[in-house]
Design a binder for these strands. Structure first.
Lengths: 230, 230
DNA sequence: GCGCCAACTGGCATTCCATGCCACATGACA
DNA sequence: TGTCATGTGGCATGGAATGCCAGTTGGCGC
């Protein structure tokens, strides 16, 4: 089920990463691999959306992509992986890159705040993510994947802050900062997904992070119109 | 894989709950059931500790407890369930009870703070949990269970705060409060498990919650002796 | 173009988790 | 004791995932 602990270590970039701005064509073999991968991913997403995650078998996905089941598992280590594995992978990589680029002068909390800003999704990524998360809402079995990704991101951040401050990874401070960061991302995502809010995800995330690091009011700041607070 | 969303609904207490202070014996049949359940759980934990979670098959657990495999799945819906299902179940129940008992006069943040205090584990529970969590550290495959439990607790809290404030469950405020609560629990657990800290888990949790709701300092409050902050 | 080697693929067998079904046994109760 | 509900065992099934081996294809030097 994918290594979970250990942050950025052995990210194992297997050539066909970084779909965006990919290297020069690099031979037919590599191209075919990427085609197969894309076909599998596309087939999977289509079938998942069509008949649900649980109801879709790996056999069907493989058939739809016209490859053997065995081949499917050569590209994706599990059925869940096809949904979030790559996204998660990229996201972790982005985070690691951003963390590595963070200036060493700023206090850790500031550094994390800046890194999160750099990590916000652009329109395209949001749309891609949205498609996957919609599935997630309907298929509780997938929540685990999302949680695991968050967990990995958190662990990465914990290690970063721990390293920055010279504290152990089990000290409250790195855990708190990382917890606040991940929670802010999670909160923003939920609010944004609900779609009843016109604010952008980045804006929501910044506000959430600010609240978690500067203080949450005892009462909600904007009690809903027409409801008295009990 | 167990219903995930939907907080406290249909908790489905199947008689043999509440191992502590159990009802009067209640007949031999019920007793045998509890014996079988205990035997399975004990066998599972022993084998997991002995040869690892992944390396232990359900067949072996069943054999060790001297029941059929089919029977195992009548008591535990999955192999993971035997490790955390019941603990999680009880924990959710505790939380629901505490939430139901929370006075309606206090502001939501206060209410949650009080409920968390009421939810802290006593010595015995800590020891029990510790045994399971030790396994978790060595078997990454189990992290998912822990995360799922946290997720359910969070969702329960979100719904509570949302209900209290009259806000939707997708409003930032309930999500933030619940996020802070769960994160504080998580942070405390990690610090406590590391064991390099003499403070009690409850104390650690209170401190974490306070930091998350009142503000996290830009630098760690107690930089480690002998290290200058870069 | 030819041939070699590495890499990719397909298909098979296997293991394990999980569930449905049905027959049998056992406790509860009148 | 007889009846009924409830557990239990065993079987068959299906899907996920992995190992293995043979066959194919692409890359590359000649």
């Amino acid at each position: 089920m994918m290594p979970v602990l250990g942050s950025c270590h052995d990210v194992g970039v297997t050539t066909s990463d970084l779909g965006i701005l990919g290297e020069p064509p690099a031979g037919r073999r590599e191209r075919k691999k990427q085609e197969t991968r894309a076909a599998l991913e596309q087939a999977a997403l289509r079938l998942f959306a069509e008949k649900g995650y649980e109801q879709t078998t790996v056999d069907e996905i493989a058939a739809e992509a016209d490859v053997a089941v065995r081949t499917f598992f050569r590209y994706f280590s599990s059925k869940q992986h096809v949904l979030f594995g790559d996204v998660g992978h990229q996201r972790i990589n982005h985070l690691c890159t951003a963390l590595a680029a963070a200036p060493t002068g700023t206090p850790p909390l500031e550094a994390v705040r800046a890194v999160l800003d750099a990590l916000d999704l652009d329109r395209d990524e949001q749309e891609q993510l949205n498609q996957r998360l919609r599935l997630l809402k309907e298929q509780p079995a997938l929540v685990g994947m999302y949680l695991m990704l968050n967990h990995q991101l958190r662990q990465t951040l914990v290690d970063f802050v721990a390293h920055r401050t010279g504290l152990p990874s089990t000290d409250p401070y790195p855990l708190l900062v990382a917890g606040a960061a991940v929670t802010s991302w999670d909160v923003a995502l939920h609010v944004w997904l609900a779609g009843e809010n016109s604010r952008s995800m980045a804006e929501l995330r910044r506000a959430a992070f600010a609240a978690l690091t500067a203080g949450i009011p005892a009462e909600p700041p904007f009690p809903p119109a027409g409801e008295e607070p009990a």
